[in-house]
């Protein structure tokens, strides 16, 4: 059983979001980088759990990014995984990123590809679905539980107002969210082991980007909270009805 886990580098949730060069570039100054939480807590840890249950499982990690992505992929290797592949290109275009991963996936003949449900920077939720399109594979999105049974995965996915369980024959792609696994903290043994795990750097394939980011901006600041006295809830109801037209 060969697993491929897609890992993305994102700014920490608490990072200050600012832009430079006439609002055309994200300001990386003083940004703390982390593994995208959905990739780490749910996709990667799920893969590690599967390997703990069946030592015959091999886990490959893949990330699309330049040399500055290496601390992140090493951190992911410290949690678990056998080896990592870094595709040496920085892109904000989901199609470019997905095409690079698809090329690796085709070569590696993986049984299961796991992604987080989305990244916390661009929130596009594109990579899993695009991989499914590029590789013509079944895709189960927003999964919160998965059990393997031979060549079949039984996966629970979120639907409006509930969840459904479905069976999918491997190879397949699954995007992971809360419930799939529990967050782990790398231990010293893992960190030491990660230093010597193979990290292969491959050059990107040539693909044309389909989108281009023109500018960024910040949402207008909230005009400030209107406080209503605790014993005057009728006033809050009036404001919500007449001013906010909330109901």
């Amino acid at each position: 059983m060969k697993l491929l886990v897609c890992i993305s580098k994102t700014p920490d949730t608490t990072s200050k979001i600012a832009f430079t060069e006439g609002n055309t570039k994200f300001d990386e100054n003083a940004v703390q980088w982390i593994i995208n939480p959905y990739d780490e807590w749910y996709a990667l840890v799920k893969a590690i759990e599967m390997k703990e249950q069946d030592p015959a499982v091999t886990i490959h990690l893949v990330t699309v990014g330049e040399a500055d992505a290496e601390p992140i992929i090493r951190k992911a290797l410290a949690l678990g995984g056998d080896e990592a592949i870094r595709i040496n290109i920085q892109s904000n275009d989901s199609f470019v990123v997905a095409s690079q991963i698809a090329a690796i996936a085709k070569e590696g003949a993986y049984d299961l590809i796991l992604t987080g449900k989305e990244t916390i920077d661009y929130n596009s939720a594109c990579i899993g679905s695009m991989l499914a399109g590029l590789l013509d594979l079944p895709f189960v999105s927003l999964a919160n539980h998965m059990v393997l049974n031979g060549n079949t995965a039984s996966v629970k996915r979120e639907i409006e107002g509930g969840e459904e369980t479905c069976e999918v024959t491997l190879p397949a792609i699954v995007s992971c969210q809360k419930g799939m696994a529990e967050q782990r903290i790398p231990n010293m043994r893992g960190i030491m082991a990660a230093r010597t795990k193979p990290l292969k750097v491959v050059e990107p394939i040539a693909v044309q980007a389909t989108t281009s980011i023109k500018t960024y901006d910040l949402p207008p600041a909230k005009s400030g909270v209107k406080l209503v006295a605790a014993d005057n809830v009728d006033e809050l109801v009036r404001l919500l009805k007449e001013e906010a037209k909330a109901f």
Binding site: I17, T210, T211, I213, K214, T215, Y216, D217, P219
Partner: peptide, 9 residues
């Protein structure tokens, strides 16, 4: 926390 203006090419 921000907006991006993205052109589809």
């Amino acid at each position: 926390k921000a907006f991006a203006h993205i052109n589809i090419d």
